[in-house]
Design a protein around this nucleic acid. Structure first.
Lengths: 235, 235
DNA sequence: CATGTCATTTTGTGATCACAAATTTTGCAT
DNA sequence: ATGCAAAATTTGTGATCACAAAATGACATG
C-alpha cells in the first residue's frame, strides 16, 4: 500500500519543544502540541475521523497519551466524540460559525485591550516581523504557513495580557474554526486576503486602546465574516 | 481509620443519568457527571488535591475513566495539573476572579438574549419553580442546594439557545468559579444573598431582550462582584 | 527541640491486554 | 450487476501492570 499522507510531522522534524520534553507529562505534551498545531494550521479536515491507534502510530507513541490528548481536545470542542465513540473533526455549520464569530468579537478585542499596556516597542518590532512574514506567505499562497503566522500574531498580543481565563477560551475558539478556514483558503486562495494587522500594530505603538480594539474587530470581521459566510451559504 | 468524608455521592444515590449509562462511554460519563456536579456545588475545595486512584475508589470504578475525565476537566480549566503531575482544584486569585467576572458579563447576557425567543410560557413556569425553590434554600442556609439550583436556573435559559459554542465556554467559567464561591458562602452564609431572577423571569415573559440582558448582568454583578471581591481583598 | 536523612508509601504515566461494538470487507444468492 | 448476510478487521473502552518521581513519615543527629 502507498504511504499515507501524514497530517502531522509536517516539516523536517523541527525540534521545537514548547511543552515539557523530559519532565512528567513528556509524551503527552508532545502529542498535545502536535495535534494542536495540526488543527490550527488546518492539517485536519472537518468531518474526517481521527483514530487513537492511527495517531499513536503516526507519532510513534503508545495509544495511552493519545487517548488523553483527544479527550482533552474534545473537552475544548476542538474534536467531537460521536455517540458510537468515534472521534472526528467537527463539521462547520452555519449556526456554529455565527456563534464562533460572535464569541470572537466579544472576547478578542477585550483581551487585546487588556494586553495593550504590557506591550512595548520591542513587541512592536516582533509583531512587525510576523506581519511582514505573513505578507510574504500570502502572495506565495502558502495557506498553512499563513494560518500558523496569523495565529502567532494574534496570540502574541493576547498572551501579553497574562490572562489565564480569557486566553484559554479564545484558544478553544481558534481550534474550532481553524480546520474550516483551511478548507476556505483552499477554495479561494490566500492571494487576496486582507487583514488589519498594520492598524493593530500602529495602535500598539500609540497605546491606543480603542484603536486596537477596532483593528482586532475589523480583522476578525474581514477574515472570517466575509469569506466564511459566503462558503457556508452553499451548505 | 475513620471513614473519610466523600466529596461525591452526596445524597441517597440519585439515579439521575444525564450522561449515557449503558452505551459506549458509560463509566466515563458517570464519572464526568459526578465530578462536574461536585465542582458546581462546591464539594471540592480550592487548593485541595484530587487523586486518580482516590476518585476511582470513591466512585467504584477503575482509574482509567477517571484519568480521562480529569484530563478533560483540566482542559476546561476546572482542574489544574501541577508541573509534578499532581491534580488539584485551582486556587482563586484576584486576577483570575476579575477575568472570570469579565468573561461572564461578556458572554452570559449575550447568550441569554439569544435564547429569549426560544422560551415560552411553559419555560416561565419552570423557571419560576426553580426560583421559588432557591428562595426556600436560601433562608435554610443550604449552600449546596442553592448552588445547584442557581446553576439550573441560569443554564435552563442558556440551554434554550441551542448553543454549541458559547454554552461550553460559559460552562467552563462556572466550573472555575463555583468551588471558590462555595467557600465564600461558607463564610458569609446564604441568608442575605440577593439575585435578579425575578427580573429575568419577567423579561422572559415579556420577551424583552434588553431587560433580560440587564437582569443577567445585574445578577452576575450582585452574585460575584459584591461578595467575591470583598473576600479576595484579604489575600 | 529543631533539622536533615533515609525508608516507605503514594501517585501519575505509559504500555499492554481483553472485550464488545461498530465498521469494513468478503462472498454468495438473486 | 445488485442486494444482502456473514466473516474479518478496526476501534474505543476499561482494567491491570511496571516504573519512576514525588510526597510522607520515621528516625537519628545536632
Amino acid at each position: 500500500m502507498a504511504v499515507r499522507r501524514s497530517a502531522l510531522k509536517s516539516g523536517p522534524s523541527k525540534a521545537t519543544t514548547p511543552a515539557p520534553s523530559t519532565s512528567r507529562g513528556a509524551t503527552r505534551g508532545q502529542v498535545d502540541t502536535a495535534v494542536r498545531s495540526g488543527l490550527l494550521t488546518g492539517r485536519f479536515i472537518p468531518g474526517k475521523a481521527v483514530t487513537i491507534r492511527g495517531l499513536a502510530a503516526e507519532l510513534g507513541v503508545s495509544p495511552m497519551p493519545v487517548r488523553e490528548v483527544l479527550q482533552r481536545l474534545a473537552a475544548e470542542n476542538a474534536l467531537e466524540v460521536k455517540p458510537n465513540g468515534r472521534i472526528q473533526i467537527p463539521d462547520m455549520t452555519r449556526g456554529r460559525f455565527d456563534e464562533v464569530l460572535k464569541a470572537r468579537l466579544l472576547l478578542e478585542p477585550e483581551l487585546a485591550e487588556l494586553a495593550l499596556s504590557s506591550l512595548d516597542s520591542s513587541d512592536v518590532k516582533a509583531l512587525t516581523a510576523i506581519d511582514d512574514d505573513i505578507d510574504q506567505r500570502l502572495v506565495n499562497g502558502d495557506a498553512e504557513a499563513y494560518m500558523r503566522l496569523n495565529h502567532a500574531f494574534h496570540f502574541y498580543i493576547y498572551r501579553a495580557s497574562g490572562s489565564k481565563v480569557l486566553l484559554p477560551l479564545i484558544d478553544s475558539l481558534w481550534l474550532q474554526f481553524a480546520p474550516f478556514m483551511r478548507t476556505v483558503y483552499g477554495r479561494v486562495g490566500t492571494a487576496n486576503l486582507v487583514d488589519q494587522h498594520k492598524e493593530a500594530i500602529r495602535a500598539v505603538e500609540q497605546q491606543d486602546g480603542p484603536a486596537l480594539r477596532a483593528a482586532i474587530t475589523a480583522d476578525i470581521t474581514d477574515g472570517m465574516g466575509l469569506l466564511g459566510k459566503e462558503i457556508l451559504l452553499k451548505a
